[in-house]
């Protein structure tokens, strides 16, 4: 692992994975997808993860994002062991700590952009007053530069605009860490760059970012580039080249 020089020594890590394993029960026999993954991410740090299709990148992100639990290894979030966390607490952490962006935008087409963003504010822990809610939604939309489209519904937005609505939805709760799984996969290069810009600017405010991508140019804009291979994470050569 490359030494992390951007962080002062002793700063608590945002995420610390060690020896994470995950076996998925396929159609025929179980397959070990992750076989001892180690990863440490600090606040404000950005990490790119490359890897062949089917190497387990999405599986890894779903463990980090607490969609699923690892079979083995240790997962520390802000120095707390959450390897075996219960679903109730996981839901609360997903809401409070994480923001998600996916290749498919997962917007609800009968809600406006603003309502799609506001969706992330509804989590059962309470209900913000309408004015506060609106202010935060608009702020998030402004961060990705599409506040003027707040009232539009997704079918009337371009792909890049839709993905930026999704990013605003991920940002609206001020997450500690953003997880992006091929967010530019469905976009052309230029639009993809806009999306990466939006994600990148979040790290400048102290947010951690883990970006799964096939695009080396995008990967090289991150602070570190890793490759997932044979169930393990290792530094990628591209970073050295770049």
């Amino acid at each position: 692992m490359s030494p992390d020089l951007t962080q002062p020594i002793g700063t608590p890590a945002l995420i610390r994975l060690s020896g994470i394993t995950k076996t998925l029960k396929g159609q025929q026999q179980p397959r070990t997808i992750l076989d001892g993954v180690d990863l440490t991410v600090h606040s404000g740090e950005s990490v790119a993860i490359l890897g062949r299709s089917g190497s387990g990148k999405s599986t890894l992100l779903s463990l980090i994002g607490l969609f699923d639990r690892p079979d083995g290894g240790q997962y520390m979030l802000e120095e707390q062991d959450i390897s075996r966390i219960a679903e109730r607490r996981a839901a609360a952490l997903r809401s409070a700590r994480f923001g998600f962006v996916f290749q498919r935008f997962f917007l609800l087409k009968n809600l406006t952009a603003a309502q799609n963003v506001a969706m992330a504010l509804v989590n059962g822990q309470g209900w913000l007053p309408r004015r506060k809610r609106r202010a935060r939604v608009l702020e998030a939309l402004e961060q990705v530069g599409i506040a003027h489209l707040a009232k539009n519904k997704p079918p009337k937005l371009s792909g890049g605009e839709q993905q930026r609505v999704a990013i605003a939805r991920a940002l609206v709760r001020d997450p500690r860490i953003l997880l992006a799984d091929e967010p530019t996969g469905a976009l052309d290069t230029e639009t993809g760059n806009l999306v990466i810009d939006a994600l990148h600017s979040a790290t400048e405010r102290g947010c951690g970012l883990i970006l799964v991508t096939h695009d080396h140019a995008h990967a090289n804009r991150m602070g570190r580039v890793l490759r997932l291979q044979d169930g393990k994470l290792a530094p990628a050569h591209q970073q050295v080249v770049a």
């Binding site: 969609f67 839901a91 997903r94 809401s95 409070a96 969706m119 989590n123």
Partner: peptide
């Protein structure tokens, strides 16, 4: 299904 999965992803508890 996608809507519900998404809601869970952004922190909506199962009971809700």
């Amino acid at each position: 299904i996608e809507e519900f999965a998404l809601r869970r992803a952004v922190g909506t508890p199962r009971i809700l």
